[in-house]
């Protein structure tokens, strides 16, 4: 067996079955994901690591419904993403997923508080509920005192914490992060990975994080090591 799944989760939040994905550029076709299967459980921070170009980001985007695989399927919260049309996938993302990206992608015109409130407005929540959730998420990220500042007035680490608050306020079951620390210095990277870990613990969220930063490995509950479109190694620390 190329890898051993040491945890048998009776009810995995995220299941990938035989995912295959190729990209063609010109005559050349490269297989980025090669018959990859994996199960990811709730309440833990799972880290995907591996060399550059091995398909980590591609896997994350397929697992989160941003891209479709060529073959195979994804079961997210026991629902098959491949069975949904584009609209339903969008609705699924709205209600169940949060994202954190390498670039913070905050609107320059909005204050930290407004950045967090904005996606909530599309979830048909009451005004009080929006305010409550936004303020709670910002407080949890330690950004309550900076909530009236625009991105231009925030440091990199603060911006990423606002971006995490924006994802967290939706109370998603699944939280995806692609290289959330690579634009940050070591200290801020530590803070961010700690926060992601705490979200997994305290909210029971399934946090899936892609990074090639080896310093993050010690913070993860489980580390999947990828190479050439496959998972080479799966180490579960059982730290839950």
């Amino acid at each position: 067996m190329p890898y051993s799944n040491t945890v048998i989760d009776p009810n995995p939040m995220l299941v990938a079955e035989n995912l295959t994905k190729s990209f063609t550029s010109g005559q050349l076709s490269t297989r980025v994901l090669d018959d990859l299967s994996v199960e990811i459980g709730a309440g833990a921070l799972t880290l995907i690591s591996g060399p550059s170009g091995c398909g980590k980001s591609t896997l994350l985007s397929i697992l989160s419904g941003l891209q479709a695989p060529d073959h195979g399927r994804v079961l997210a919260l026991s629902e098959s993403l491949q069975a949904m049309d584009a609209k339903r996938v969008e609705a699924f993302r709205l209600h169940h997923t949060g994202f954190v990206f390498q670039g913070f992608n905050l609107f320059p015109a909005l204050t930290a508080r407004e950045q967090v409130q904005l996606p909530l407005q599309y979830m048909r929540l009451s005004a009080q509920e929006i305010t409550r959730r936004a303020d709670e998420a910002l407080a949890e990220m330690g950004m309550a005192h900076r909530q009236h500042l625009r991105p231009a007035a925030l440091s990199g680490g603060e911006k990423q914490r606002v971006a995490i608050a924006r994802a967290l306020a939706k109370a998603p079951a699944l939280l995806f992060a692609d290289e959330p620390t690579s634009a940050l210095d070591a200290a801020n990277g530590q803070i961010v990975i700690d926060l992601l870990h705490r979200i997994a613990r305290n909210h029971g969220t399934t946090v899936l994080c892609v990074s090639h930063d080896p310093r993050l490995i010690s913070h993860a509950d489980r580390v999947l090591t990828m190479e050439d479109g496959r998972i080479l190694d799966d180490s579960d620390r059982g730290a839950r």
Partner: peptide, 14 residues
Amino acid sequence: SVNEYATLNALGVG
């Protein structure tokens, strides 16, 4: 602001 809009779309804003 294309990346910010894309982020909103990732978060499920249609």
